[in-house]
Amino acid sequence: MFRTVFLFVILGLGLFVGTQYSGQQGYVLISIANKTIEMSVTTLVIFIIATLAALFFLEFILKRAASMSYNTWNWFSVRKLRRSRRYTNEGIIKLLEGDFKHAEKKVMRWANHHDKPLLCYLIAAEAAFSQGDENKRQQYLEKASEQDDSTLAVGLTRAKQDIRAKNYELAFDGLSTLNGQFPNNSLIQDLLKGVYIELKLWQPLIDILPKLGREKSINKEESDRYLLLAHSGLLEEIAQQKGSEGLIAHWDSLPKKLKNEPSLIATFSKQLIARKADYEAFGVVKNVLKKNNVEELYALLPEMNLSDRHPMNQFLLSSIKKDPDNAAAHSALGQLYIRDQNWPEAQKHLEQALAKRSNVSDYAYLADALEHQNLNQAARDVSRKALTLVKS
């Protein structure tokens, strides 16, 4: 547009000047080396205008040709891109349908022409993993890692696949590296939570739970459940490493709220019993049962190996006196009487326990007590009840 206006301006000026100086064309002499060119001013002006017009026209032709070439090339590129996207979409559908072989072929067929080849390589890696082809999976992940801004996507894909393959150590290494690079990524934190549980890394699990709660990755109920699981596992770990003294020291350092949790008290007591600290375990369980009726803790009492079981018997008798319907206390006392070979008393308390609730173990103990009293038919009847309970 500018060039057209420019030409009209030049023509206008030429017409104006030509009108003003008609009949006075002037004289122009151009000398180059041994050559001379003579012309009138009017001729020179017309020549210049014609030259400019020719140059502008030539520029237009060249641009037109270049534009046509570019449009032609662009048309082919867009066509390849559209085809690549179509194959990728079809590959994703095949992956979801479980046709992993065709999914891999679809996404890789035109991956080089896709505007996001990273997506193609990750889908191909997933398809190869689902087919159990580890070599291809690694090749696709390597190609994916060569793409721009691929660190997080490739790392998460690799970690998820390692977790599904139960390669938890590899997943831990990868996720730990990613966590250092992307500390605020909630998906990384959630995957680490599962890996910590599988590898029994209890302290890291305890440390990560508050962050998962703040990010709403888990609700309070889940957080409490994982916290108890982690502390329970940590108690077992410390017991194995430091023995009963280290276990007691760790228990004393826990917050009061945790020390009131029945499941943790049970774990703590079991670890003490396993390390022959039975009297310490009895003291812990007794103090809790004085305040709360926890069936799981009553069940631990018969497992304790005390040289003098009289205090334990007296404690259970007082519990029953306070609550005659305490089935767990009747069961524990019945088991203790079996150890003392006091079969009639064992029978009495086990029958009272079973009158309140059905329990396979109590049926087995009762059958044993009856057999030792030569009540064989009654013992068989009780055994059939236990078998029925197991099958139901």
Rank of each mutant, 00 (worst) to 15 (best):
F16P: 10
S383K: 02
A386D: 05
M108P: 02
M304Y: 10
W251D: 02
G12R: 05
L175P: 00
Y196C: 01
K290V: 07
E261H: 12
G23K: 00
Q241L: 13
V17T: 04
A230H: 10
G12E: 02
A159V: 10
F56C: 01
E295Q: 09
L317Y: 14
A249T: 07
A281P: 01
P255Y: 02
F315M: 08
D99Y: 12
Q271P: 07
K348E: 08
P204L: 07
T72V: 08
K286W: 04
R85I: 09
D190Y: 12
Y226F: 11
Y87E: 07
H231N: 12
A111K: 04
E126Q: 11
T88M: 07
Q139P: 15
N34R: 15
F76Y: 13
F129H: 12
D252R: 15
I248K: 07
I123S: 01
F76M: 06
L212W: 01
D115E: 12
G334F: 05
L235W: 12
Q240T: 01
S67T: 13
G18Y: 11
R109H: 15
K211Y: 01
T43L: 11
M39T: 13
N287W: 09
Y298H: 09
A379F: 04
A54V: 03
W251N: 00
A367F: 14
V154K: 00
Q240M: 13
V195D: 02
I61M: 01
K391S: 02
R82K: 13
K211W: 04
L62H: 11
G14F: 12
H349A: 04
S269E: 02
D368F: 15
V107F: 14
N89A: 12
L209D: 07
A379L: 04
T36L: 05
A353F: 08
D190F: 10
F56I: 03
F60Q: 00
P117E: 04
E280S: 08
L387Y: 01
L119G: 08
A53P: 11
Q161C: 06
A266T: 06
R357D: 02
A153H: 01
L178A: 05
V28R: 05
D173F: 10
G243A: 03
F57E: 01
R339E: 07
S145V: 14
Q138E: 07
L156E: 00
L175F: 01
S67V: 12
M39Q: 14
E90K: 13
D278M: 12
R85L: 13
Y87Q: 04
G91P: 09
